[in-house]
């Protein structure tokens, strides 16, 4: 096994009831690699990355993250401490301040002191450029700011891998770039990233590899320049035509 491979997914199958959402999905990700997953809605792309940190269970197949198998009992908990996740709906904790949102994990799961956790949190808020919002409640922030807080909250756990599940889909257009900028910086710092998004500009700029999914299968993978120039499958071609129309 290649030690560089931080995520290895082998013949993954998942069902919602009788409906098969994922069919024989194979994917391996190297350390530091940035992967953008795209595809029409219902293609299983969100489900796929949610399987990686155990938010979804799967019926058959194997997932190994940083050498830890999700099939093992207790594997999920250990994997989750390596993997950060950013959600479409931000999912900030509304009853806590921004700072408390960031420090909850480090203090309760990592056992950091309040002082150490606060320092870490402020450092990450600086990084996403909203330290001045530290003592506000999430609802007093704009969507773009909330999503940046969510990114900082994940980074507080010092993850090896970051999963992004349509991080800009719930944002007003003018706020998309402030979130993407933070993600680009993260990529430049060498973070391993799996990003489900329709932001093709971001994909072109950041992705080492594009993964196109449709109907629960990986239809096509390749470097952004290759797939954008000449998509091999008709399905990917149709999809790109649709989203790049505007």
């Amino acid at each position: 096994m290649n030690a560089e491979r931080v995520i290895e997914i082998k013949s993954l199958n998942k069902f919602f009831g009788d409906f098969q959402v994922l069919t024989n999905v194979d994917l391996s990700v190297s350390l530091g690699e940035r992967i953008v997953i795209c595809g029409p809605s219902g293609s299983g792309k969100s489900t796929l990355i949610r399987c990686v940190n155990g938010l979804e269970q799967f019926e058959s197949g194997q997932i190994r993250v940083d050498g830890i198998s999700l099939n093992d009992p207790g594997g999920v908990d250990r994997v989750r401490s390596e993997v950060g996740m950013v959600f479409q709906q931000f999912n900030l904790f509304p009853h806590l301040t921004v700072l408390e949102n960031l420090t909850l994990g480090p203090m309760k799961a990592r056992g950091l002191s309040r002082k150490a956790a606060d320092a870490l949190a402020m450092q990450l808020l600086e990084r996403v450029r909203i330290p001045e919002q530290a003592h506000k409640r999430p609802r007093d922030l704009s969507g773009g700011q909330q999503q940046r807080v969510a990114i900082a909250r994940s980074l507080c756990m010092k993850p090896k891998i970051m999963l992004f599940d349509e991080p800009t889909s719930a944002l007003d257009p003018e706020m998309i770039s402030e979130v993407l900028d933070v993600m680009v910086e993260l990529a430049e710092d060498g973070m391993t990233m799996l990003v489900v998004t329709h932001e093709m500009g971001f994909a072109r700029k950041v992705a080492d590899r594009m993964v196109f999914m449709d109907g629960g299968e990986i239809v096509e993978t390749g470097t952004p320049s290759a797939v954008f120039e000449a998509p091999k499958s008709q399905r990917f071609k149709d999809f790109l035509d649709k989203i790049l129309q505007h």
Partner: peptide, 11 residues
């Protein structure tokens, strides 16, 4: 999503 976010930050 609240539970999911909490679990992903290690709680």
């Amino acid at each position: 999503g609240q539970t999911e976010a909490a679990r992903t930050v290690g709680l």
